[in-house]
């Protein structure tokens, strides 16, 4: 058994909240730079230039890349030989509280969907736990803006709809998202499992680094195909028309029931924030 202090976890979460919101993930920035070289639309190229300038300014002036600093989504992989001294859950919320306050990030959480009173410290975080072998604890903070989250969808397809059905679902979601999701987007797709597992897979797909294909050869091919088709929609940067509608598309899969084929599409914007640390 290895002991980890709750205070250490708070410190890490705080640091990750700030870094993820200010320092654009390098593979995403690289993808924007590459897209700038191939984008066919002049207005589209202008937008991609603005995004690169924005990323540089954010870093230099210590400002959030985007004003929607999101809901704090936290993934915890906890080794089964780890013991946390104190409350793990409270340590995470405290990290979010400190990070969003000290980092001058926007507090966008309301305590109830109807009364809509702001909690003023961006808590509670949305936390996903996974128990893994070993004695380490990995924390990933993935702040998620609502503009793109609002354009995400889940489909309960029939097995007979096959790969064509999956492609249709993804492309329909991208078309409906259009300019609302701040394209160029990063697209996370979950296939299989059941209703909630599928949505979780789509979110997990957004944690994969931009540029990294699925380890399953069939699905890696499908990622290439779907990315090309998404870029063929013509939506382009900010929806002003162009050849860069998506920077990346990742698919995560899981076994499913003989009678079902759930597909979830979680749209992310070009900011695509996620930062990790291992304790």
């Amino acid at each position: 058994m290895r002991n980890i202090q709750a205070e250490q976890i708070t410190e890490v979460v705080k640091r990750l909240c700030i870094k993820a919101n200010i320092d654009l993930n390098p593979p995403v920035e690289e993808a924007i730079r590459k897209a700038r070289e191939t984008e066919a639309s002049p207005v589209g190229r202008e937008i991609l230039d603005q995004l690169l300038e924005n990323a540089a300014l954010a870093r230099e002036q210590n400002l959030p890349i985007c004003q929607d600093t999101g809901l704090a989504v936290v993934f915890v992989e906890i080794g089964q030989d780890v013991h946390v001294e104190g409350s793990l859950e409270e340590a995470i919320h405290e990290g979010v509280r400190q990070g969003y306050t000290e980092g001058y990030l926007r507090k966008s959480v309301v305590r109830d969907p109807i009364d809509r009173v702001n909690t003023k410290d961006n808590t509670p975080a949305i936390i996903h736990y996974e128990i893994v072998p070993g004695d380490q604890l990995k924390i990933t903070v993935a702040p998620k803006g609502i503009g793109s989250e609002n354009m995400s969808r889940i489909y309960m397809l029939k097995p007979a709809q096959g790969i064509e059905g999956i492609e249709q679902a993804v492309l329909e979601t991208v078309a409906l998202a259009g300019p609302n999701a701040c394209p160029p987007m990063v697209i996370g797709v979950g296939v299989g499992g059941n209703f909630e597992k599928c949505a979780y897979l789509a979110k997990k797909a957004l944690l994969r680094e931009v540029g990294q294909y699925s380890e399953k050869p069939f699905w890696a091919e499908e990622e290439k195909t779907l990315l090309e088709k998404a870029n063929g929609t013509g939506i382009g940067p900010q929806g002003f028309g162009g050849t860069t509608t998506a920077l990346w598309l990742a698919i995560e899969t899981y076994p499913t029931h003989i009678g079902g084929m759930p597909v979830a599409v979680n749209i992310n914007c070009h900011v695509a924030r996620h930062e990790s640390e291992v304790l």
């Binding site: 995004l51 300038e53 924005n54 990323a55 954010a58 002036q61 985007c66 503009g147 070009h270």
Partner: peptide, 8 residues
């Protein structure tokens, strides 16, 4: 305005 260009 360009979405996600908040610093600029």
């Amino acid at each position: 305005a360009t979405g996600g260009a908040g610093a600029l």
